[in-house]
Deep mutational scan, measured.
Amino acid sequence: DYEVGESVTVMDGPFATLPATISEVNAEQQKLKVLVSIFGRETPVELTFGQVSKI
């Protein structure tokens, strides 16, 4: 299970290999909103559970 505030690594898509912090969890739809730090700015990205891995 994923929790808000948890650190994960993006495994898929254009942000693969980047660390991210979970900002929202939708367990019903198996989706997460995460904040990816790009060029010093936090960018919100919506991903599925399968696109991230716990650190």
Score class of each variant (00 low, 15 high):
Val45Glu: 04
Glu28Tyr: 09
Phe15Asn: 03
Gln29Gly: 09
Ala20Gln: 01
Ala20Met: 03
Phe15Glu: 01
Gly40Thr: 03
Lys54Pro: 07
Gly13Arg: 02
Pro14Ser: 05
Lys54Gln: 06
Ser37Pro: 06
Pro14Glu: 09
Val25Thr: 04
Glu46His: 07
Ser23Glu: 10
Phe39Leu: 14
Ala20Tyr: 02
Thr43Tyr: 15
Gly40Asp: 07
Ser7Leu: 14
Gly13Val: 02
Ser23Ala: 13
Lys33Gly: 05
Phe39His: 13
Asp1Asn: 13
Leu47Thr: 03
Leu47Val: 11
Ala27Gln: 12
Ser37Phe: 14
Gly40Tyr: 04
Ile38Pro: 04
Gly5Cys: 06
Arg41Ser: 12
Leu18Arg: 08
Glu28Phe: 10
Thr43Leu: 13
Leu47Glu: 00
Asn26His: 11
Thr21Gly: 02
Ser7Trp: 15
Leu18Pro: 01
Pro44Ser: 15
Pro14Met: 08
Gln30Pro: 02
Ser37Asn: 13
Asp12His: 12
Pro19Leu: 14
Thr9Glu: 07
Lys54Ile: 06
Ala16His: 05
Glu28Arg: 09
Ser7Pro: 07
Gln51Lys: 04
Thr48Pro: 05
Ile55Asn: 11
Ser37Ile: 15
Asp1Met: 15
Pro14Val: 08
Glu3Pro: 03
Val45Met: 08
Leu18Trp: 14
Val36Gly: 01
Val36Lys: 00
Asn26Ala: 06
Gly50Trp: 14
Asp1Pro: 14
Phe15Asp: 02
Phe15Ile: 02
Tyr2Gly: 02
Phe15Gly: 02
Glu24Lys: 06
Thr48Lys: 10
Asp12Phe: 14
Ala20Lys: 01
Phe49Ala: 02
Ala27Tyr: 15
Ser7Lys: 14
Val52Tyr: 02
Glu46Ile: 09
Arg41Phe: 13
Tyr2Ala: 02
Gly50Val: 09
Tyr2Val: 03
Leu47Phe: 06
Asp1His: 13
Ile38Trp: 12
Val8Thr: 01
Glu46Thr: 09
Pro19Met: 15
Lys54Tyr: 06
Thr17Phe: 13
Val8Lys: 00
Gln30Asn: 09
Ala20Asp: 00
Lys31Gln: 09
Val52Asp: 01
Gly13Ser: 03
Val25Lys: 03
Gln30Phe: 09
Pro19Tyr: 13
Val45Trp: 07
Thr43Glu: 13
Pro14Asp: 07
Val34Thr: 03
Met11Leu: 13
Glu6Ser: 07
Val52Trp: 01
Glu42His: 08
Val8Ala: 02
Ser53Asn: 09
Leu35Ile: 14
Leu32Pro: 00
Gly50Cys: 09
Ser53Phe: 07
Glu42Lys: 09
Thr21Cys: 07
Tyr2His: 04
Glu24Ile: 06
Asp1Lys: 13
Ile22Asp: 00
Leu35Cys: 09
Val8His: 00
Ala27Ser: 11
Thr17His: 12
Tyr2Ser: 00
Glu6Cys: 07
Ile22Met: 01
Gly13Ala: 02
Ile22Val: 11
Lys33Ile: 15
Gly50Arg: 10
Tyr2Met: 05
Asn26Thr: 05
Ser37Lys: 13
Thr9Val: 15
Lys33Thr: 15
Glu28Gln: 11
Gln29His: 10
Ala16Asp: 05
Glu6Asp: 14
Gln51Tyr: 03
Val8Ser: 00
Val52His: 01
Met11Glu: 07
Ser23Pro: 00
Phe15Arg: 02
Gln29Pro: 03
Glu46Gly: 04
Glu3Met: 13
Ile38Glu: 07
Glu28His: 10
Glu42Gly: 05
Ile22Lys: 01
Leu18Cys: 10
Ile38Val: 12
Phe49Ile: 04
Arg41Cys: 13
Gly5Gln: 03
Val52Ser: 01
Lys31Ser: 11
Val10Met: 05
Ala20Leu: 03
Glu42Thr: 07
Ile55His: 11
Gly50Pro: 06
Gly13Lys: 01
Ser53Met: 12
Val10Ile: 15
Val8Glu: 01
Gln51Asp: 06
Leu32Gly: 00
Ser53His: 10
Leu47Ser: 01
Gly50Asp: 14
Gln30Asp: 05
Glu24Val: 08
Ser7His: 13
Val8Ile: 09
Gln29Lys: 11
Glu46Ser: 08
Asp12Cys: 10
Glu42Ile: 11
Arg41Lys: 15
Gly13Met: 02
Val25Met: 05
Ile55Trp: 10
Val10Pro: 03
Val45Cys: 08
Gly5Glu: 02
Pro19Val: 15
Leu18Ile: 06
Leu32His: 01
Gly5Met: 04
Val10Asp: 00
Val8Gly: 01
Phe39Gln: 13
Ile22Leu: 03
Leu18Ser: 06
Val8Arg: 00
Asp12Val: 14
Val45Gln: 04
Thr48Gln: 09
Ala20Asn: 02
Ala16Asn: 07
Val36Asp: 01
Glu3Arg: 13
Thr21Ile: 15
Gln51Arg: 03
Phe15Gln: 02
Leu32Trp: 02
Leu18Val: 05
Lys54Met: 05
Lys31Phe: 08
Ser53Arg: 11
Arg41Leu: 14
Asn26Gly: 04
Ile38Gln: 09
Leu47Ile: 06
Val8Asn: 01
Ser37Leu: 15
Gln51Val: 04
Val45His: 05
Thr43Ser: 07
Val34Arg: 00
Gly5Trp: 04
Tyr2Asp: 00
Glu6Tyr: 05
Gly5Thr: 02
Ser23Phe: 15
Lys33Val: 15
Leu47Lys: 02
Val10Leu: 05
Thr9Ala: 06
Ala16Ile: 09
Lys33Ser: 08
Glu24Cys: 10
Lys31Trp: 12
Asn26Leu: 11
Asn26Glu: 05
Pro19Phe: 12
Glu3Asn: 11
Phe15Thr: 02
Val36Ser: 01
Phe15Met: 05
Gln29Val: 09
Lys31Ile: 14
Thr48Tyr: 12
Thr48Asn: 12
Val34Tyr: 02
Glu6Phe: 05
Gln29Asn: 10
Asp12Glu: 14
Gly13Tyr: 03
Ser53Lys: 12
Ile38Lys: 06
Tyr2Cys: 03
Ser53Pro: 01
Gln30His: 09
Lys54Cys: 04
Tyr2Ile: 03
Thr21Trp: 10
Gln51Asn: 05
Phe49Leu: 04
Ser7Tyr: 12
Ser53Cys: 11
Thr9Asn: 07
Val4Tyr: 04
Pro14His: 06
Leu35Pro: 00
Pro44Cys: 15
Val4Ser: 04
Lys31Tyr: 10
Leu47Asp: 00
Gly40Ile: 03
Asp12Met: 11
Lys54Leu: 06
Ser23Gly: 05
Glu42Arg: 06
Pro19His: 13
Thr17Ala: 10
Val4Phe: 04
Arg41Ala: 11
Ser7Ile: 15
Gly5Tyr: 04
Leu47Gly: 00
Ser37Gln: 13
Glu24Arg: 05
Ala16Cys: 08
Thr43Val: 15
Gly13Trp: 03
Lys33Arg: 10
Pro14Gly: 04
Asp12Thr: 12
Gly50Asn: 13
Thr17Pro: 07
Leu35Val: 13
Phe39Thr: 07
Asn26Gln: 09
Ile55Arg: 09
Thr9Lys: 09
Val34Met: 04
Val34Leu: 08
Tyr2Lys: 01
Val45Asp: 02
Glu3Gln: 14
Ser53Thr: 11
Lys54Ser: 06
Ala16Gln: 08
Val4Ala: 06
Ala27Ile: 13
Ile22Cys: 02
Gln51Ser: 06
Ser7Asp: 08
Ser23Trp: 14
Phe15Lys: 02
Val34His: 00
Pro14Trp: 06
Gln29Arg: 10
Phe49Asp: 01
Arg41Tyr: 11
Val25His: 02
Lys31Cys: 07
Gly5Asp: 04
Val8Gln: 00
Val8Phe: 02
Met11Ile: 15
Ala16Arg: 12
Val52Arg: 00
Val10Ser: 01
Gly50Ser: 13
Leu32Thr: 00
Thr48Val: 07
Asn26Arg: 07
Asn26Asp: 12
Val45Tyr: 06
Leu32Val: 10
Met11Gln: 07
Pro44Arg: 11
Pro19Ala: 12
Gly40Asn: 07
Leu18Glu: 05
Pro19Asn: 12
Ala16Trp: 05
Leu35Met: 12
Phe15His: 06
Asp12Arg: 08
